[in-house]
Simulated assay, not measured.
Amino acid sequence: MKEQTDDNPKPPEEVQDRIWELAKKIDICAFTTWDGERQRSRPLSARLSRDEHAIYFLVDVNGSKNAEIEQFPYVSCFWANNGDYKYVLISGKAVLSNDRARIADLWEDADRAWWEDENDPSIRLITVTPEDGELWDSPGKPVALAKMIFAAVTNTAPKMGDNAKVGL
């Protein structure tokens, strides 16, 4: 499935590459779940593996997101680099597990802020299988600001860079 806006003539494969690249570079995403009545987002550090077509998150056994995923497994992950006007959205199906080998494999020193080590029994793994992605990829802040000023002066809509939706 391919959907692209008029502002992005790039082939879907190139858009997919850029989505994975930016998400990995930005790291922290707003991880959004649904509880049956409303959405809830929280910042989580993402471990992306394009080769495995997966996004991994280490989380605590306690937390409403775990129950929400069990009942409503479709989630979205949104990465934002506001300084350069670069944004990525990936949606897909999430699964919560207690895969101890994978948790140990994904463990990073920064995780010590929440757990003593990778053997902490309260760590759980969320695995997201991406289905759709969207990209907003500006040429950078100075260029974006110049385009906005030009658009304001000429009373036209600014062309801010690439925007495309693709299947992942």
Rank of each mutant, 00 (worst) to 15 (best):
R50I: 09
A94F: 09
A110K: 11
G83I: 01
S41V: 04
L22D: 07
A80W: 10
D17I: 04
L135W: 06
F57V: 03
R38A: 15
W136G: 05
R18N: 04
G161L: 08
T33Q: 10
E14N: 06
F72H: 12
M148R: 08
S122N: 14
G92S: 06
G167W: 15
A157D: 14
Y74G: 00
K86V: 13
N66W: 02
G92F: 07
D117C: 03
I55E: 00
A164I: 03
M148W: 12
D6T: 15
V95H: 07
Y85H: 12
T5F: 14
G133Y: 05
K10A: 13
N62S: 09
I69Q: 00
V61C: 02
K2V: 14
D6A: 15
P73G: 03
C77D: 04
E118W: 08
E21K: 09
I55Y: 01
L22V: 07
M1R: 02
R50H: 09
D105T: 13
L135P: 02
S45R: 12
S76V: 05
T154G: 04
G161A: 11
F31V: 08
P43N: 04
E3G: 12
S138L: 05
K159Q: 15
P142Y: 05
E14D: 06
P73Y: 00
I103W: 03
V88F: 04
T156C: 01
S76G: 01
A46S: 15
C29E: 11
E116F: 12
D132L: 12
G133H: 06
A94N: 07
A104G: 10
Y85D: 06
L96G: 02
F57C: 01
Y56S: 01
P11A: 14
P43L: 02
I26T: 12
G36S: 01
Y85A: 08
D117G: 02
D99T: 10
I55T: 00
L22S: 05
D99P: 08
S76W: 01
T154V: 06
K86W: 09
I26N: 04
L58A: 00
G140I: 10
L145Y: 08
T33P: 07
K25M: 13
E37P: 03
L96H: 06
P142R: 04
R102P: 11
S41W: 10
I55M: 07
Q39T: 14
W34P: 00
I123N: 00
P9N: 11
W114C: 11
A30V: 11
V61E: 10
I90P: 08
C77Q: 11
E108Y: 02
K159P: 09
S76M: 03
Q71N: 06
A30M: 13
V59A: 05
A110R: 14
M160P: 10
V153I: 14
Q4M: 15
G83S: 11
L89Q: 15
M1L: 12
P130E: 09
T32L: 12
S41C: 04
V61T: 09
N155Q: 07
S49V: 03
A157S: 14
V153N: 06
G140L: 06
A164W: 06
K65Y: 10
N98H: 14
D35V: 08
N98T: 14
Q71R: 07
L106H: 01
T129S: 13
E37T: 10
